[in-house]
Simulated assay, not measured.
Amino acid sequence: MRHAKTVMNIEGRWQGINDSDIPEESLRHFEERIRFLAGKNIKAIYSSCLVRSIKSATVAASILGIDHIETVRGFNERDLGLMEGKTNDEIREKFGITDIYIASRAIESIPMVEPWPKFVGRVMATLQAFSGRDGSLVITHGGVMRAIYNTLTGSNERRVIFDNGYILKLEFSGSWRISEIIGQ
């Protein structure tokens, strides 16, 4: 599940591994999304190590009655280097990049951006370690969800958007598969 909407999300700024506050209105919307999961047999909550995910996971744990959250570095967002904190217009102007989206290989020319294949490898290795953890809720990021989606579907579909609070429901039976996208 993607974390609650942050100030930088609202402003249209790329966050990467940086964090920003989550407004109260965004937390209330996220709480509504979490209430949807009540009674769905969530046994454990995991979070990326980034503050926006931990704060969102804390809200989820409170609502779902889970007393422990484990952070997992492998589910951190893609490091976006010098494009973090900038809008698409600022990125176009400063770096001359026009193909700007989370899975873009073009943004790798921007200093310190984590290469997409390395990011995907990290995310998928982390996901593989979750193959025996039925009933887990992972609070993570849009880029992580995109990496999983692209890998499991074998596509680079950009029209499927993982907005804040969206859920990518996965099932494991010998291999991972997407069973549902909740929130579209």
Rank of each mutant, 00 (worst) to 15 (best):
S48Q: 04
A60Y: 03
W14K: 09
I22K: 01
G142Q: 05
N150G: 02
S62L: 08
W176G: 06
T140H: 00
E84L: 14
S104F: 08
Y166D: 03
G65E: 03
L37N: 00
S136M: 09
A60E: 00
S155A: 07
D67A: 14
L137W: 02
D163F: 12
E93V: 15
M112C: 12
D99Q: 12
V59G: 01
S47I: 05
Q15V: 08
G132F: 06
E25P: 02
Y101S: 14
S20D: 05
L127F: 04
S48W: 07
D163L: 10
P23F: 13
A147Y: 11
F172R: 03
I63H: 06
G154C: 05
N76W: 09
I107E: 01
R78V: 09
G65Y: 03
I148Q: 03
V120Q: 03
R13K: 13
T6R: 02
A44W: 08
S109E: 15
I148V: 14
D134L: 09
P23Q: 11
A106D: 15
M124D: 01
K40C: 14
R2E: 11
F95H: 06
I69R: 07
F95C: 01
M83R: 04
V123Y: 10
M83Y: 03
I34N: 03
R73A: 15
T126N: 10
L37C: 05
W14S: 06
E108G: 07
I167N: 00
Y149M: 08
G174A: 12
R73P: 09
N41W: 05
R133L: 10
I45P: 00
G154R: 09
R177Q: 13
R146Y: 06
F95N: 01
L27T: 12
N41E: 15
G81R: 00
E108P: 05
A57E: 06
L152E: 01
S109W: 05
I54F: 09
M145W: 05
G135S: 09
G96A: 11
Y166L: 01
I66L: 15
G135C: 05
E157L: 12
I139M: 04
A44F: 06
I178M: 11
G142Y: 06
P23R: 05
S104G: 13
D99C: 13
Y46T: 03
H141Q: 02
C49L: 07
I66W: 06
M124Q: 00
V7N: 05
G16M: 04
G183A: 10
R122V: 09
S173P: 04
A57H: 08
E11F: 00
K118S: 15
G85I: 14
E157F: 08
L152W: 07
Y149I: 01
R2T: 07
L64E: 00
T87R: 05
R133N: 09
F75N: 02
A103I: 10
E93R: 15
